[in-house]
Computed example of a mutant assay.
Amino acid sequence: MAKLQKSIDKRNALVKATIELVNNNGFHATPMSKIAKMAKVSPATIYLYFQNKQDLVNQTYIEVKAKYTDYAFETYDENTSVELGFEVIWKRIADFKLKDPENSMFLAQCDNTPMIDEPSRQEGIKHLQPLLDLWNRGKSEGIIKPMSDYILYAYAINPLSFLVISQKRGVFTLDKTHIEEAYQSAWNSIKVCK
């Protein structure tokens, strides 16, 4: 049992080191040797858990995406109205990004790099299914604009990454008023104007 826990701890240390190094240095300036050193394991140990750097980054991305979406949908009830459902999900996403900026920054980097392979991206999108289902219901009810889910995500969710990164850099502080303003802007960007 202790051996299994030690193995889990090593793998978790590798994932944590990957996130930190990618956030600070980018994907290409994060060699396996640095990841191993930061995780306090030998470079050969990485290959017990991951096939290569691509596999390490892809698996880390999927794990972080799962953590993010589990948090985002934890209090969401699919039987609520489209508007209330979106508000609950959006505010949980904002809360996650503010409470866990390291994982949020890592996901933002993954969204903007070719480093994540397409199968891993598709796996990450599956984790967003409750939001996509909500948007589809909203489109069919004439509440959400009939646009691509990618465009909806770009206008309604991605701006949060910019705001969180701005806060991390110390140039902007997201207080309750800003969160509410950002939510209203997100909702207004995707709802059908009547």
Rank of each mutant, 00 (worst) to 15 (best):
W135S: 04
G138A: 07
K34H: 11
W135E: 03
G142A: 13
M147C: 09
I157W: 01
H127K: 15
A186Y: 00
S7Q: 14
Q109N: 11
P101V: 06
R11W: 02
T69F: 09
E87H: 12
Y61G: 02
I144M: 03
A29N: 14
Y150A: 15
C110P: 01
K191M: 13
M38I: 10
Q184K: 14
S42I: 05
K37T: 11
S7L: 12
I116P: 00
K67W: 08
Y71T: 05
A13P: 03
L14R: 02
E102V: 10
K40C: 07
M147L: 14
D149L: 08
S104L: 02
I144S: 01
N188P: 07
G138N: 01
A186G: 03
K91Q: 15
N136W: 09
Q5Y: 12
V171G: 09
A29T: 10
A186K: 00
K168C: 05
E74K: 15
A39V: 04
Q59C: 11
A156L: 01
D70K: 12
K53Y: 04
A29W: 09
L14M: 11
M1Q: 10
N12R: 13
L131E: 02
E118M: 10
T45H: 09
Q59K: 15
N188T: 10
I157F: 04
C110Q: 02
R137W: 05
Y155N: 10
N52Q: 04
I116N: 00
H127G: 15
I179G: 04
G142Y: 05
R11S: 11
F172Y: 03
D133C: 09
N12T: 11
I143G: 05
Y76L: 08
Q51F: 13
L174T: 06
F86H: 03
K91T: 04
S42H: 11
R169T: 09
Y153H: 10
N158A: 10
K16C: 10
E141M: 13
N12E: 14
V171W: 08
I143M: 05
M32S: 08
Y68N: 06
I144Q: 01
A29G: 10
F106K: 00
A2Q: 13
G26F: 04
D149A: 08
L14H: 01
Y49W: 06
A44W: 09
L4E: 13
R137P: 02
C193Q: 11
S185K: 14
D55M: 09
S185D: 12
S104A: 11
T75Y: 10
I144F: 01
C193S: 12
T60A: 12
Q54P: 07
N188K: 15
G124D: 00
L174K: 04
T173P: 09
K37W: 06
W135F: 08
P130K: 08
P146G: 08
N112S: 06
I144E: 00
S140D: 12
E118I: 12
T60N: 07
E181K: 14
P31T: 06
I165F: 07
N158P: 05
Y155Q: 11
